[in-house]
Simulated scan of single mutants.
Amino acid sequence: MTARVLDRLTVPWIPLPHTMDVVLTPGTPDGYAVTAAFAVVVDTRGHTLLARVDRPGRGWDVPGGHVADGEAPAEAAARELAEETGYIVDAARLRPFGGQRITLHADPPADYGYPARAYMAFHAVQLAGPGPDTRPAPDSECVAAAWFAPDEVRAHCAGAAWLPLHATLVTTP
């Protein structure tokens, strides 16, 4: 499968030597296991729905999280979107468009919990109107959800590895 690399980096939250490629691709890269799925929801104004996690080192982010055993990535993205923002969308409406391809440079230790070649799949949905008011589920790790213009997304999520993917979906001033 052809993937266009938008960025190549390492991130502090992966404790092993690695490379993360932020890729634009309509599917899962060959040889990679999907471990997390995210939903990037953009409305007709170009605003993106973000969720705020109230934990140290976290903050505003695109909704998403781990893919459960037996769960399809789009189903996981739709589930996480509903839990973290209160916005419900049918998984069939989510279009895979890219992700974060993580390659470890050594075999992971037995207790690591992730494969040596993991993929964090990003899905997009374009709304036909302005984004509605939303609120995270009461038992969610998120405490707020809101719509942000592209420059606000970059400000609230500065340093997020997924920003090059987001830029492919919205017109930036």
Rank of each mutant, 00 (worst) to 15 (best):
R4F: 08
V5N: 05
L6H: 10
D7P: 00
D7R: 15
R8Q: 08
L9N: 02
V11K: 11
I14T: 04
P15L: 13
P15G: 11
P17L: 01
T19L: 07
T19K: 00
T19A: 02
D21N: 11
P26N: 08
P29V: 04
D30T: 15
G31I: 09
G31E: 00
G31A: 09
G31P: 10
Y32Q: 03
T35M: 05
A36N: 11
A37T: 05
A37C: 08
A39G: 11
A39V: 12
V42N: 01
D43M: 12
T44K: 06
T44G: 05
R45C: 13
R45K: 12
A51H: 06
R52L: 07
V53S: 10
D54C: 09
D54I: 10
G57Y: 03
R58S: 12
W60A: 06
G70S: 10
G70W: 04
A74V: 04
A74Y: 08
E75K: 06
A76K: 07
A77Q: 10
A77Y: 08
R79I: 10
A82R: 12
E84A: 01
T85H: 01
T85S: 12
G86I: 09
Y87S: 02
D90I: 14
A92E: 13
A92I: 07
R93F: 06
R93L: 14
L94A: 11
L94E: 11
P96Y: 01
F97P: 01
G98Y: 12
G98H: 04
G98S: 10
T103M: 02
L104R: 07
L104S: 07
H105L: 06
H105I: 00
D107I: 01
D111H: 14
Y112L: 10
Y114N: 11
Y114D: 03
Y119F: 15
M120P: 01
A121T: 04
A121G: 07
A121E: 09
F122V: 03
L127G: 04
L127P: 07
A128I: 09
G129P: 05
P130W: 00
G131E: 09
G131W: 15
G131V: 14
P132V: 10
P132D: 08
A137E: 14
A137G: 11
D139V: 10
E141T: 13
A145T: 04
A145C: 05
W147M: 05
F148E: 00
F148R: 02
F148A: 09
P150Q: 02
